[in-house]
């Protein structure tokens, strides 16, 4: 425990008036813990980290940590982060978003950041609902579920964020859950160390809104659900599609090399200056 306290002292902003905005039992705190541990493990200096977030419960995360922090407009975190990174490539830019933030209002920015392969890490906390505004359905709310705007059940299909990121061209995509906190540390570390657009989807829960409306129980029971429905990528490889129907895969979904925007743009700069590139 002493080590944890030390980390908290090192990375949290003490001049910010706690308590935080999250409900007791929320998964965002667990993700924040994993984020801090992974950054510490990777050995980044606090000054070189820029933590960018959008709007929503997850969007409130940067205010509590002692980095360069940027709380942007709804859905636009990746665009601000793109500007930060390109203007000062020495900075390590990490973007945290919720599911609504990243793939509804910010969906276009998400796929284009992946396609462009900008060197950023996008962490998306997926709790299947708009929590801050009171529990409306999001693009990741499964079919048939109840939310405050689908009281007669959700008739839309859900996005699979990680699979979307793979298709859009992200070079590193991993999924974890807040139940598997230890594993999440490792996934975040790998994502931070990857050159290119890396995505970590963090499956979480919103017991206050989504859980209550769908009678899924307390935060603990919802985390129990995560435990039961998560299948590691390795294990899933040997399973039939029917067996995987109500499960979600955790682990590294893809880890590949593609040209990174900044490296390519350095060549553009050289060409513009008349330096020939082999």
């Amino acid at each position: 425990m002493a080590g944890v306290t030390e980390l908290i002292h090192k990375y949290l902003r003490h001049d910010k008036k706690f308590p935080h905005v999250w409900c007791p039992g929320c998964g965002i705190g667990i993700m924040l813990g994993a984020l801090i541990r992974a950054i510490d493990q990777c050995g980044f200096a606090k000054d070189e980290i820029v933590l960018v977030a959008g709007i929503g419960c997850t969007g409130r995360l940067p205010v509590y940590v002692d980095f360069n922090t940027l709380h942007t407009t709804h859905g636009r975190a990746l665009t601000f982060a793109t500007g930060v990174k390109l203007a000062n490539p020495k900075l390590k830019v990490i973007v945290v978003m919720g599911d609504g933030d990243a793939v509804a209002i910010g969906g276009n920015h998400f796929i284009h950041a992946a396609r462009r392969n900008i060197d950023l890490t996008a962490i998306i906390l997926n709790n299947s609902v708009y929590g801050m505004t009171g529990g409306q359905f999001s693009p990741t709310t499964p079919y048939g579920m109840r939310t405050t705007t689908t009281m007669f059940s959700n008739v839309e299909q859900a996005f699979k964020i990680s699979e979307l990121a793979v298709t859009a061209g992200a070079v590193f995509v991993a999924r974890g859950s807040v139940y598997h906190a230890k594993m999440l540390d490792g996934l975040l570390e790998k994502a931070f160390m990857k050159n290119g657009f890396s995505v970590v989807e963090v499956v979480s829960h919103c017991h206050t809104q989504y859980g209550r409306l769908n009678r899924m129980g307390t935060a603990v029971e919802m985390m129990q659900w995560q435990k039961e429905h998560a299948i590691t990528v390795e294990k899933a490889a040997g399973m039939a599609d029917e067996e995987l129907a109500d499960k979600f895969k955790i682990g590294v979904l893809i880890d590949r090399e593609l040209p990174v925007f900044q490296d390519e743009y350095d060549k553009v700069k050289a060409r513009a200056k008349g330096i020939s590139i082999p």
Binding site: V50, V52, L70, T72, T73, R76, L78, T79, F80, A81, T82, G83, V84, K85, L86, A87, N88, L91, N108, H109, H112
Partner: peptide, 18 residues
């Protein structure tokens, strides 16, 4: 960028980075 919203976001981000 992919649209003008993104352009304006990137411009603000770049300015914050100097």
């Amino acid at each position: 960028m992919e649209d003008e919203i993104a352009s304006m976001g990137a411009v603000i981000g770049a300015s914050l980075a100097g």
